[in-house]
Structures are given as C-alpha cells and as structure tokens.
Design a protein around this nucleic acid. Structure first.
Length: 916
RNA sequence: GGGCCGGUAGUUCAGCGGUAGAAUACCCGACUUGCACUCGGGAGGUCGCGGGUUCAAAUCCCGCCCGGUCCA
C-alpha cells in the first residue's frame, strides 16, 4: 500500500510554515520549517545533540516520564497505569511491544470502550528483534524501553482529535516544554503497519535523533485489501529514553537512562572508557548497525580516525564499554520479566528470560564477575523499584528465579563443554587445524555453547576458530521458514455469519443447576442445530461439552457434542433432527455436568493451592477437565516434590471442607482488571467487554467461562493422581475430584486386592514380595544364558556322532525348533573350533518362516565351503536371502513347504562344490 | 508451536542391517605390598517405548516418551 501524499498535508503544517521537502540521501519526504536537502535523521546527518543539547530542560528518564505524563494530563488526557510487559491478555504476542498493544484488539476494533479517552500512559515495552544491536548503537536500540503513548480513539459519533492536534501536542511539548527551537524539528512521512492495522505516520526528528512516531491508525487488512476502520486511533510512541538522551546530550542514552547505575556497573566489571571516545562514537552511532556490517565498519574507521586511533585500538577501548551497556539493558529487562512471574524455560517468554540471563552471564564471565549477576540484578531492582512498585515487591522472587536459572546454566555449560572438548580433541587427532563451521553450528544449536566459548576452548587445544561474520543471522535464516497461515473457516461458520444468526442465550450462566429447558430451533444445518437459548455447555476453556437429549412432539434426538462458534452455540444431534422453528425441550446429562463442574472448580482450587505452596510465579499454562480426571499445567522451575504435592492436596481439601461459596459475577473488563489484576487471566485470553469472574473466597480469582459448583463442599474430595514434567518450566498436576475421586480410590484399592489375591499375599507384603520375584527372575535369566553356553560344550560329542561324513568334510544338519537361533550360534561357533572340517547347518522353523544358521570350520572353508554361500543356497530354496562371511552365515525364508527337499539338495550342492 | 542433537553395561561412549563392543569403575587372582602401577580372569545389557519393512533391526521407516538445545 502506498500512502497518498495528501494524507500529510496538515492544516497545522501549512499554518506554521512547514514545507514538504525530500531528503537527497534517503529519499524520504519530510516537513520542516527550515529549508534543507537532508531529512535530519542519522545516518543522513550526524547526531549533533551530543554534548550540545538543543533543549533548555534537562531530565533523565524518570524526569522525562513525569513531564510527559503531566503535559498530556494538563491537556485533557487521563493518566493510566502501565500494563504488564508480559501481555497475557493477548494470544498473538508474547510481550508488550508498544503502548497500543494495551488496547488491541478490543478497543481499537470498537468492541470495548477505552479506560479513558483521550489517555496517556508510559508503557514499559520489550523488543527482542534488535537484541544484537543493544549496546553498540549508543542506546538507540534497547530490549526494554518506555513508550510514551498518548492515545485518542475516534468514533464516527464521537471525534476526539486527529492528525493536526496530535502533531500540535507533540510540537508544543518539544518546543515549549523542552525548549527546542521549532526549526530544528522535522517530521518524516512514513507508513506504519502492524498487527493487521495500518495508517500514515510521521516520525519526529531532532538533531539526528528520531524521538517519536505519531501514527494515525485508520486502515485494516480485509481479504487482502486495506479498508478504513470504524475507530480511528491516534497511536503515538514517544521514545522517552531518547527524549532523555536528547535533553541531557550525554554521550550515550545509557547515561540518561541508568544514571548512577552506569558507573557502578563499569566499576564492578572493571571497565573504563574515555569520554571523548564515547562522544565521537555517539555522534556517528546512527550508522552503526550489526545488520549492515559494511556501513558499520566504515563508521568505525571514521570514528577511529577522528580520535587518532587505529581501528583495533579504538575497538579495544569501546567494546568493553558496549558490553557494560548490554548488561545494563539486559539486567533491567530480565528484572521486569521475572517480576511478572516468568519462569525461565525453553519456550515462549520463558525462553526470552533464559536468553537474556545467558547473554548477561556470558558477558560477565568474560569480565570474570559472573558471580555478581544477582548483585547487579539487585541494583536494577533498587533503582526501578522506586518507580515500578511490582519490581520492588517481587524482589525475592526475581532473585530466586535468576539464581536457579544461573545454576541450571552452569550445569549445562559444564556438561556440554565436556562433550565439546572431546569433539575438539577428535578433530585434532584427525589432523585438522581449524574448527569446521558445522562444529560451531552444532555446538551452538544443539548444545548451547556460544561461538566465543568454543573459540576459547579450541584455542587451548591449539585449534583455530573462525566465526563467520554472519553466523547468527545465518542461523536465524535457517530457522525462519515462512509458512502461509491460511485459517480455514468452517463451512458452518461461514453460513452462520452470512445468515447473521444471533448469539445464543446462555442459560447455564443464569442458573448453573438448570438441566431442563424449553427453546426454539432457529437454524438447522445437516445434523447441527442452533437454539435461541440453551443450557448445554459448549466445549471451551478446557471443559468438555455437555451431552444429553432434546425432545419435541413424540420425537427425540441425542445431543452428542456442543460447540461454540463466536457467540452462537451449535448442537450436534444424532438420530432425529428437529425442523426449523420447532419448540423443543432439552435435557442436559446431569451426572456428566456435575462431574465436569466439580473438576472445573477443583482446578481453580488446585491452582490457588499450587501458588500458595510453590510461589507467585505459578501461572496456569493449560488445563483440561474430563469426566474421569482433570489436569492442570502450571509454570514452575523444578520438579514438584512429593512433599509439595501433599501440601497442595491438604490446602485444596481444606478449601473443600470449609464449604466456601463460589462467587460468580460479571464485571466490566477494566473494573475486573483493576480489582483483581492480570492474574485473572489464568486460563488465557478472555474476549469481550465483560469478564465473568469466579471467586473462591480469598483463595483464588479467575476470569472463566466454565460451569462451577455453588459451594466448594460439593466437590467432596480432591486427590492428586500424578505429577508430570511436561517441559522445562511447566509441570502437570493430574487430579480427580468428587465422584471420580471416589472411583479412582476404589479402583486403586481394587487393583491392590486383585494382586494380593493372585499372589496370595496380604497387601502390606506385596512390595517386598515383588522385589523378591524380580530378583529371582534376573537369576533365572542369567542361568539360562550360562546353561546355553555350557550346552555348546556338552553338545560336541553328540554333534561328532551325528555329523555325516561326506568325503573330507562332516555335515551336521538339523531341522527343529528345540533350540533357538542364539543357542545354535553358540553351539555352532564352539563346534567348528573343535571339529575343523565341520559344516554346521541348523534350520529353525518358526511360525511362517525358517531361520538358517550355518558355520563352516577352517578345513571346510579351505575346501571351498563358505558358510555364507551355503546359507544363501538354503535360503534361496526357501524363497529367502542370507548374509554373513565364509565362517558364519545366517539367513532364512518363508517357503516352509520346501523344507523336506533341502537336505538332498544341500548334499548335491556340496558334491558339486568338491568337484570344482 | 516449529527445527536440530541425543537416549546402548554403574559411568562415558563406539557400533548404524547379519554372534552387542571399548574405556573406566566394580569383583576375584597374580606381581608387588604403604599406596599407586602392571598383568590375568570375572561379573555387568528387554541397545528409551510401540508399530512397520526384512529371512534377519541397536542399526532403515513411522509414531510416541524422555533429556538437551536453538528459533518464533
């Protein structure tokens, strides 16, 4: 989609003398009051604000945040609290990457009203796609940053403000509040798109630095075309870190963001760097980008020249500093992630936390201070905890999760390093001098050993390692395979949408005990029917669907499955299907519903209990409630112990015995979030503007659409059946409740009784007895093995006697299955040692096949008799095949009918052989 | 969620269609004898689980489980 230039012809620009111009370097159009042939953004120009701030107000990040919020507040925007950095309210994103994410999709698509309109928020955001640039670009790239979002949501019936006012606010803040001269600012034309939305945008540039992006979201993608949206959203992103950097004019943004933490981290890591090196780097840092190595290298040369250094000398000075910055950024991001209960693991946000921690650890290791990782994390908590209360509150949780993860990483490194050393030693033995690329890739991908760590080890062993410049990007390319995701819409879904069938009235919410109801059929499609109202619960939230029957007149249909399509509930009916507009009576299977409800409420109770026993990092990672049993997956960093399970069981059953009322009520989404926090979203995303809250005393509160019991006492009893380790960071608790629990216990006792009766041993002696049996079994197995060996010795005289003498060789030929193949091998191999002119030939008929074992003694071999050939000869008669060598051959075939002619043919064959 | 690597003796691994191996630790013996070393012998395995192909599977194919790791 190309943007119509008209989109940018703002009244505000015209009235204030902004002129549209084109940058001769990058070709972008921009608006500025000053005539210039360049757009003003680095790398088209240098960063001129360094050591030469254009502002009259000088603030660090915390100051900028306050000023920004107050400015918009004074201009009619309501300040709202930032959302979490882990965006659990959406299933299409792992982390909050922009302030607008807080309001997508329900606010931006008009389904929900915003918490205020207009509003302003300073939203901590995480972004990982530029992680390799963090530290090397003087702070232009960060994994964690605050996006100042001033948002206005414009509805057809209610216009708040649009482009002109947005630019005006921005311009006023930067000029009147921060005191930048108006002509210093240029606004670059840009098209923004993301998350299925798009719109024109302007990027605000001051003295080389892009400080804000003002987006006017007004299109959405529909059937491959951009169409206007109903709600037009002002989506501004003020880069607060950059505003702070600009206003202080410090050599890097890290100075402005981290203040006293920067010198502290430098001291701990033992890093020093002259200011002039940082200043000269900062001026040109707009051209530094690891994804563009050519430009970066040129820029490095340029900076080195200005400083009067060789490139090597310059890099030696700047690189350690850059690593300090990376650590500063990463430890902050890690603290924010862990504060929200993210358990480091190998999936999703857990992986992001792990990656950050490992990067930090590796850098600190380089500076020999890896043991101070937790200390550094502590400083971040001290510093940011003052402004973000949850960081301070979660201090212990953050440090504990980090500590456990460090220990895990150390263990992994130790183990994997040993494997690597072995491999490197092998390379050396093979006479190689350089580590091949495959080995570097394998070490990194399969064993988590960073190329730098590999290089260090290889050097010790005298091997050269050349890490390709594009190593990481090539790995990423290997992984990214674009798969066109085409969501196939159900045929039924399409029809329901087209016919505009209304949402079904959900009787199971109004009265969870209602199991019999009257309703009218409003749509029929094959054996699927839609009613105007229903008490049948449709499968969702891990709770299985209800079943039952419907009757009308004198007819009856069985409801075997119920599903939800949007707000419409569809019943799959077997047997007779009622015609349209029939009045029916529905009967919900009572036992199943009760059991599912019991399991569902029990799941919430177990979840709360697990959180109490294991810690605040416990989140539901998945759940399924079946009739027979239920399971709950939770995030946790280590295997749950027997003791912990016992405590969870105890707490859960205590809640049951207290017979607490299960409160169910709906709240406006924002109200619910405000009252109970994002912990509500245990079961994942809950769409819609109203949230159904399930509250069990002060034990647990969750947003949930399932059916529940009225009082916890109805559950009767909860028993954990087993605990499984699903994946790193996720544990599964399988449990039973209510009647299913009774059945499970009865079943367990039944098994015990059966075993006891069969073994004729009292239950309490079973374990002891089984141990004995296992031991005896092992002994027997050993004996058989020993005996078959002995058998080969004892068999010798027998074989000598039975073997037929055929001019010079002796043939021992046997057809039966008294002995198995391995025994024949044992006997045969011993026999030919003793009787060197022996040809040992055993045919073992088994079910439908015959196995052939042939041994040929030394003398027999000399006479040209090869065991392999004999085996092959025999096997061919049996329509099979054989292999081996001249001493030992084995094979077989399927044609059992030929079994009786083999001996004659074999003797003939041997005669022929000796004629040769 | 996807990709890759791995699962064989107590341990570390080799074997990669045709009798399951090495090293190390273990047990016994010899030489020594303070220990170590050396030598000889022994014991130790449902080759992760389940299917399939084959006369024959640790080995090839498919599915699953477990461990590790990278990416989203």
């Amino acid at each position: 989609m190309a943007v119509d230039p008209k989109e940018f012809e703002l009244e505000y620009f015209k009235k204030n003398g902004f002129i549209r111009q084109k940058c001769k370097v990058c070709g972008t159009h921009f608006w500025s009051q000053r005539i210039s042939d360049v757009c003003g953004e680095s790398p088209c120009v240098e960063n001129t604000f360094i050591e030469n701030t254009p502002t009259t107000l000088h603030l660090d990040l915390n100051g900028v945040r306050e000023t920004f919020l107050n400015f918009f507040n004074k201009n009619g925007h309501t300040i709202i609290e930032p959302y979490p950095v882990v965006c659990r309210w959406r299933d299409d994103l792992l982390v909050t990457i922009a302030s607008i994410v807080d309001f997508q999709p329900y606010v931006t698509n008009g389904e929900l009203p915003p918490p205020a309109n207009p509003l302003v928020v300073s939203q901590p955001c995480l972004r990982f796609e530029d992680i390799d640039n963090v530290g090397v670009t003087s702070g232009r790239h960060l994994t964690i940053f605050e996006m100042g979002g001033a948002h206005a949501f414009n509805y057809p019936e209610k216009e708040v403000y649009w482009k002109d006012k947005t630019v005006e606010y921005h311009h006023e803040l930067i000029t009147k509040v921060f005191g930048v001269k108006s002509e210093k600012i240029s606004y670059k034309e840009h098209l923004w798109s993301g998350g299925g939305n798009a719109g024109p945008a302007v990027e605000a540039i001051v003295d080389g630095l892009e400080i804000s992006t003002l987006v006017f979201m007004c299109y959405k993608m529909e059937n491959g075309h951009w169409v206007p949206t109903i709600v037009r959203t002002v989506d501004t992103g003020y880069g607060l870190e950059r505003w702070a950097w600009l206003s202080l004019g410090t050599p890097t943004a890290f100075h402005a963001i981290f203040g006293p933490l920067l010198p502290k981290f430098m001291e701990i890591m033992g890093v020093e760097c002259e200011n002039r090196v940082l200043i000269e780097t900062g001026k040109l840092s707009g051209a530094l980008n690891v994804e563009n190595p050519n430009l970066s290298n040129q820029t490095r040369e340029k900076v080195a020249k200005r400083l009067g250094f060789s490139v090597e000398e310059y890099m030696r000075r700047i690189e350690p500093f850059e690593k300090v910055c990376t650590v500063l950024d990463h430890t902050k991001a890690l603290a924010f992630l862990l504060a929200e209960g993210v358990v480091p693991s190998n999936v999703k946000t857990g992986y992001l936390a792990r990656m950050l921690l490992r990067r930090i650890y590796r850098i600190l290791y380089e500076f020999k201070c890896e043991n101070q990782l937790l200390e550094l994390l502590g400083y971040q908590i001290d510093y940011w905890g003052k402004f973000f209360r949850n960081i301070e509150i979660s201090r212990n949780e953050i440090l504990k999760l980090a500590q456990i993860e460090v220990e895990k990483y150390k263990r992994t490194l130790e183990r994997e390093m040993e494997i690597l050393i072995k491999k490197l030693n092998n390379l050396r033995k093979e006479g190689k001098r350089e580590v091949p690329r495959e080995v570097i890739v394998e070490a990194y991908e399969s064993h988590g050993i960073h190329p730098m760590q590999l290089k260090e080890q290889a050097m010790k062993l005298g091997l050269i390692t050349n890490i390709p410049q594009d190593f990481f990007s090539s790995i990423i390319k290997m992984h990214t395979r674009k798969t066109a995701e085409i969501e196939e819409k159900d045929e039924l879904e399409t029809i329901l949408l087209e016919k505009k069938i209304p949402s079904t009235e959900k009787l199971f919410y109004e009265d969870p005990k209602l199991l019999q109801f009257k309703a009218k059929v409003i749509h029929v499609h094959n054996n699927y029917i839609v009613l105007d109202r229903t008490a049948f619960y449709a499968e969702s939230g891990g709770q299985l669907s209800d079943i039952g029957k419907i009757t009308w007149k004198d007819r009856e249909g069985v409801v075997k499955y119920v599903k939800k399509i949007g707000g419409i509930i569809v019943h799959e009916v077997e047997g007779a299907t009622p015609p349209l507009n029939t009045e029916i009576i529905g009967y919900v299977d009572k036992e199943r519903r009760e059991q599912l409800s019991i399991h569902h409420t029990a799941t919430h109770i177990i979840n709360g209990a697990a959180r109490k026993v294991l810690g605040e990092h416990v989140w539901q990672a998945g759940a399924q409630k079946d009739v027979k049993e239920a399971r709950l997956d939770i995030t946790h960093y280590t295997n749950i112990t027997e003791e912990e399970i016992k405590r969870i069981e105890e707490i859960a059953n205590e809640i049951v015995r207290k017979n607490i009322q299960v409160e169910i009520y709906t709240l406006p989404r924002l109200e619910a979030e405000k009252r109970y926090g994002y912990r509500l979203y245990q079961g994942g995303v809950v769409p819609g503007r109203e949230i159904r809250v399930i509250k069990i005393g002060d034990h647990d509160v969750e947003a949930c659409g399932g059916t529940h019991v009225l009082n916890t006492g109805e559950i009767g009893f909860i028993k954990v059946v087993k605990v499984e380790h699903i994946q790193d960071g996720v544990e599964r608790i399988v449990f039973v409740a209510g009647k299913a629990a009774l059945e499970k216990v009865q079943e367990a006792f039944g098994i015990l009784k059966d075993v006891s009766r069969k073994m004729q041993i009292p239950p309490e002696k079973i374990v002891e007895s089984v141990e004995k049996i296992i031991k005896e079994n092992e002994e027997i197995r050993r004996k058989i093995k020993k005996y078959s060996k002995r058998l080969s010795e004892y068999a010798l005289p027998y074989i000598k006697e039975k073997a037929e003498i055929l001019s010079g060789i002796r043939l021992y030929y046997v057809v039966n299955n008294d002995l198995d193949e391995s025994t024949h091998i044992e006997i045969g191999s011993t026999a030919i040692e003793e009787i060197q002119n022996l040809l040992y030939c055993a045919l073992i008929p088994l079910n439908n096949v015959v196995q052939v074992v042939v041994f040929s003694g030394k003398q027999a071999q000399e006479k040209g008799i090869s065991a392999k050939d004999v085996a092959n000869f025999v096997a061919k008669i049996l329509d099979g095949a054989a292999g081996g060598d001249k001493r030992f051959g084995r094979g077989g075939g399927k044609n059992i009918d030929k079994l009786n002619i083999i001996k004659d043919k074999l003797i003939e064959y041997l005669k022929d052989k000796r004629c040769e």
